[in-house]
Write a protein that binds this DNA or RNA. Structure first.
Lengths: 231, 231
DNA sequence: CGATTAATTGATACTTCTCAAATCCTGTGG
DNA sequence: CCACAGGATTTGAGAAGTATCAATTAATCG
């Protein structure tokens, strides 16, 4: 695998690593290792103790955890410029989620020592990490509220909109992520069959178009009303 | 209100402020203001921009947010030595939750400048904050999974156990927190009537004892089985 | 002690789950 | 490139779990 150059990494702009000095970045550059993951591969396994974090250079991953019945729950996604695994490193706990690629993904592994060194030596870097965690905490709170209070139908409508916001659209206007019906169910917290039935309804009502796993949103406003999304 | 002494604050041991030097702590000590809140008072209001954080010296609070139907969702609790409001400060977003006291509470307000100064000047303090946020993120993921996958019955059983773990027991063996049925419903994400019915069932099955809002757990193992809590 | 809020109980309706069976895709190897 | 195996998707029917509405009763707070 090619050893990518951090200084030119297009993902760095959105990342805490943007805050590092040239010297600090060089240290990262010299010690990191770049890896390529094929679609469906597992990067981190829930319960393990990682030796460092991954910066996603290009690709898409899902973070999921197993419920008490062994069912997968998708917690959130990661994509270009996102950092994966730092929660576990910072808390000193085992990994709370499994990270699986949703498409071919290239990512760089940064050992945890570098992470701690950067925190030790660069408050701006620390602050940037905290900011990121804060955003995630806020997002988690929103998700908690939605799961607790919204119906399955409402949650699915919202999830569809969230996916578009997160991953954007392809040239053809499809939401730029390919998920199985089961994965959608594992985001919403419902049975696969329920997702299928509700998607059919949404299609019937001309809110979306479906071609296999390709999904196009044709009436986002109505979808937002159904999902009670008021942003 | 008395101006409490940080150096002798019993809550400091468990708090990020434990990492501050004597000089740094003196700065906090001189600028902070101590406040007393009666039961039911609101400390922070969702949507506002706080000018700083609160250290809870002694007391209990709930963090909750409003769902799209205006229903309260309780996200988590705070008690002695917990810090409230830092998420919003660090992310620069509005407060994502309302903080309400569940009993009389004394807390100290620390302006955000001090918080940022401490992060700037003391990496150990930063790390301690990050550790705390990491734990909360892990906790949030667990909650998300439970809400998405468990039944109302299971969630209620778990909530009862979580409350005991969080707040401990009184001398009489009751869970040391007083919540209305509605508040329990707003944790579980269900209707108040459902909580009442299920609590009656649990009582019928001799898993718990109920006297008004006093709740005693008499069969935690069975409750854990029902709640599918495998810790 | 009223007055208000909280808790309880009952009846009914609805949403969602579960199980089963049939088709449709997708990725893979020949 | 094509056929095939195994997984993914779809549809149906019935059961179960919760929500909702309404009416009482109990508890709490000035």
């Amino acid at each position: 695998m090619e050893h990518f150059d951090c200084a030119n990494c297009p993902s760095r702009i959105d990342s805490p690593f943007h805050e590092l000095s040239v010297d600090e970045l060089t240290k990262v550059q010299n010690i990191k290792s770049c890896t390529f993951f094929k679609k469906g591969q597992i990067i981190f396994h829930e319960g393990n103790r990682p030796g460092g974090i991954y910066c996603i250079r290009k690709g898409k991953v899902k973070l999921s955890r197993l419920g008490s019945d062994g069912k997968e729950q998708i917690i959130r996604f990661g994509k270009d410029s996102d950092i994966i695994g730092y929660r576990s490193i910072l808390s000193g706990e085992n990994l709370s989620a499994t990270v699986t690629t949703l498409e071919d993904t290239s990512a760089c592994f940064v050992p945890k020592k570098i992470l701690f060194d950067s925190i030790e030596g660069n408050p701006k870097f620390s602050l940037r990490i905290m900011k990121e965690m804060s955003r995630e905490l806020g997002e988690a709170g929103r998700l908690i509220t939605n799961l607790a209070q919204k119906s399955v139908r409402e949650r699915l409508a919202e999830v569809i909109l969230v996916l578009r916001t997160t991953f954007g659209e392809t040239e053809e206007g499809n939401v730029d992520i390919s998920l199985t019906r089961e994965e959608l169910a594992n985001m919403v917290g419902t049975a696969t069959e329920s997702v299928i039935r509700l998607l059919s309804e949404f299609k019937e009502d001309q809110l979306i178009e479906l071609k296999g796993r390709k999904l196009k949103i044709t009436n986002p406003d109505q979808l937002a009303r159904i999902g009670k999304v008021f942003d």
